[in-house]
Computed example of a mutant assay.
Amino acid sequence: MTTAFPALGTTAEVLVTDPRRLSAAVDLLSVELAAIDLACSRFRADSEISRLHETAGRQVRVGALLAEALGAALRAARLTDGLVDPTVGAAVRALGYDRDFALITGGVVSVKQCSNPVSHPRPAPAEPIPAPGWHRVLFDPAQRLVVLPRGVHLDLGATAKALAADRAARRIHASLGCGVLVNLGGDLRSAGPEPAGGWQIALGDDHAEAVVRPDTTVALHHDGALASSGTTRRRWRHGGRTVHHIVDPRTGDAAEPRWRTVTVAAKSTVDANTASTAAIVLGEDAPAWLEARRLPARLVGVGGDVVTTPGWPRERKAA
């Protein structure tokens, strides 16, 4: 049994092996998503990460969830040598991604206030802003103490949603006992017993349409994780050109388009999404980088060519 609903600017979906547990699973997932949004959303003035930006330059003790999310983001930066860097906040804003993606349309930002839509023209395009570097963030995970330097802006988008998938799947299985699959806009995590043959995952450039028009299907097994990053869905016009949401921290600009979609299997959704994001940034060097780290992956080029790395599961082609 499955149900889906909008969350975190994407679609949240939960599947369970016991239909009687579906409603409770949805409730548990909703609680996790609300918590991660309140802790990590850069689009909410009342989020904890927004308050952290307001106290830049001072030592602050953060809540347990933001500490976990920040730890995951800094670990991702360390493991990728900065290819995935949480200090790209200023860079993504300079590219025009300055509020929830659902509000970005056609070069203007549309905000619905009550029943009256209001459009705010974008400011003049800014030059790309390279990331200051994750190493500048001082973080003591044991004490949950953070010093965010002035002028450094965080964006945990590459890891926070994946962390929510990991946390939610574990929590739902622990609470309800049934098998569960959580899908947050292409970030997937399973926990507990699986259906016969595993969870069947449809892959495509657009996760929302992949179920009805999949490019291929793979099986995800017990406590497995899968994440896809791509450049075809979250795109917009800015400064007379089309840009996307995956930023190369080294340049502050949208990553060069070698791959339109990269899907990676790993032990956690955070690790899978870290690797798939890094692969988009790496471009041509991505397959060798993934293979060296023994990460099974499927890369689809902008021209439609498909490259897989060792260990990628057997695919079932779409009819």
Rank of each mutant, 00 (worst) to 15 (best):
M1G: 03
T2D: 10
F5M: 09
L8C: 05
R21C: 14
R21L: 11
L22Y: 04
L28Y: 12
S30P: 03
S30H: 13
I36P: 03
C40S: 03
S41E: 06
R42V: 11
R42I: 11
L52D: 01
Q59D: 05
R61P: 02
L66P: 01
L66E: 00
A67P: 04
E68P: 09
A72N: 02
L74S: 06
L74I: 06
A77S: 15
R78Y: 12
T80A: 02
D81G: 14
L83S: 00
D85I: 02
D85P: 13
P86K: 09
T87H: 10
V88F: 07
A90I: 03
V92Q: 13
R93K: 15
L95D: 00
F101H: 13
G107Y: 10
G107V: 09
V108F: 03
V111K: 04
N116V: 09
S119T: 13
W134T: 04
W134G: 00
P141N: 07
A142H: 10
R144T: 05
G151S: 11
V152S: 10
H153N: 01
L156N: 09
G157C: 08
A158Q: 04
L163A: 01
R167F: 11
R167Y: 11
A168Q: 06
A169H: 02
I172L: 08
H173G: 03
H173T: 08
G179I: 00
V180A: 06
N183C: 10
G185W: 04
G185R: 02
G186H: 08
G186Q: 08
G186A: 07
L188V: 09
S190Y: 04
G192F: 08
P193S: 12
G197Q: 11
G198W: 12
E209M: 13
V212K: 11
T216F: 14
T216A: 15
T217I: 12
D223I: 12
S229M: 08
T231R: 01
R233W: 00
R234A: 00
R234G: 00
W236C: 07
H238S: 12
V243E: 08
H245G: 07
D248G: 09
R250Q: 12
T251A: 08
T251G: 04
A254E: 14
E256N: 05
E256L: 14
V262T: 06
V262W: 13
T263E: 07
K267L: 12
T274A: 08
A275Q: 00
A275P: 00
S276C: 12
S276L: 10
S276M: 06
A279V: 06
E284T: 08
D285A: 14
R294Y: 01
L295C: 00
P296I: 01
G301P: 14
G304N: 11
V307W: 07
P310G: 02
K317Y: 13
